[in-house]
Design a protein around this nucleic acid. Structure first.
Lengths: 178, 178
DNA sequence: GAAAGTGTACCGTCCGGATAGTATAGTTAA
DNA sequence: TTAACTATACTATCCGGACGGTACACTTTC
């Protein structure tokens, strides 16, 4: 268990704190406790709270970017591969390690520019999606609807039922194939 | 200028603080300063920070609810009137007093149940939208895409250009008429 | 009709608790 | 034995909220 995996464990712990206790309880002590280390140990790895949050966002961004570009590259059909990759990965991400998204919540709270990696990621994808062979307005709508699901869940505004989510997923994928 | 309008002024001040300085700077002192009153005066109107945030959410929810139900009631065509009202009002809301949405950001940060009025609102609309004569999955997608726009703007993840936004608005409205 | 009382709006100060970050001594592993 | 890491003790700061007043418009009571 090298340095790096410990650092990532800490990031997961931080996400869990945000998810369980809210942004205001994302304290260094709470994260240390959740990660099973001391506050000093935490500060050894991430010398400030901002650095910790930055780590969360960067980890999320790297994961997301890699998954989506892999997915797009392995798509046999060229037309619409980016929007399909986006929909696929986002849905699966939402099912699996949902709580990594909480890094965004933390980032939004902590400082203005800690969301920069995410913003960059999104403008990249927007470019790809719009030059992907399908109607850019339609592609944008598919993407916005996908975002609407996880954002409203992250925000806890409303949670869509599993069955309905699957139906929506299917229809969005269909549209991305037309 | 009665008691009520002063209270609403304070809510706007609080939203402005969140929008300009972020959630962590939503302090009683900052809000008081923005509203041009003292901390004591602020606490007179809202006896705690939680009460203040609750006021923000409730104000937003009431406004939103009223606008959408008015809009739906005045729609000459019955089929799809709720989803149309939702799309219309949300787009216009986003253009106009965008910063009221910041109450949600504050609510999400402050406590678990301060978002309750919003959650209730959303489940009401979801019910209406799904029994509105058009395909519920399609209606849900229209609604999710609408949410995706303002949520990603609120989150500052990415901002869609005005032209594209109008095109999306138009297409969503078309779909809501089919 | 004036003295006494009441309610509303607001101000400025103070305090306790929480928290980010520092310092440093100790421990483990290569 | 040195770099990676932990644990603890401590400091400085910030913030929510309590509180004691002030101002003033009203109403009631004698």
């Amino acid at each position: 268990m090298g340095r790096n995996s410990r650092k990532i464990e800490i990031l997961h712990a931080a996400s869990k704190v945000v998810s369980d206790q809210g942004i205001f309880n994302l304290t260094l002590e709470a994260v240390a406790k959740e990660a099973g280390i001391s506050k000093g140990g935490l500060l050894y790895h991430y010398p400030s709270k901002e650095a910790l949050v930055h780590g969360m966002v960067e980890h999320l961004a790297n994961n997301y970017r890699e998954k989506i570009s892999n997915n797009a590259e392995n798509d046999p059909i060229d037309k619409g591969k980016w929007i399909r990759a986006y929909v696929d990965v986002t849905f699966n991400q939402t099912y699996q390690n949902k709580n990594m998204h909480y890094g965004l919540l933390a980032a939004k709270a902590v400082s203005t520019n800690s969301l920069d990696p995410i913003r960059e990621l999104y403008s990249e994808w927007q470019r790809e999606i719009e030059h992907d062979g399908i109607d850019p307005v339609k592609a944008s709508i598919i993407r916005l609807a996908t975002d609407g699901i996880w954002l409203s869940e992250l925000f806890d505004i409303y949670h869509i039922g599993e069955d309905k989510k699957k139906a929506i997923f299917k229809k969005l994928k269909d549209w991305a194939n037309e």
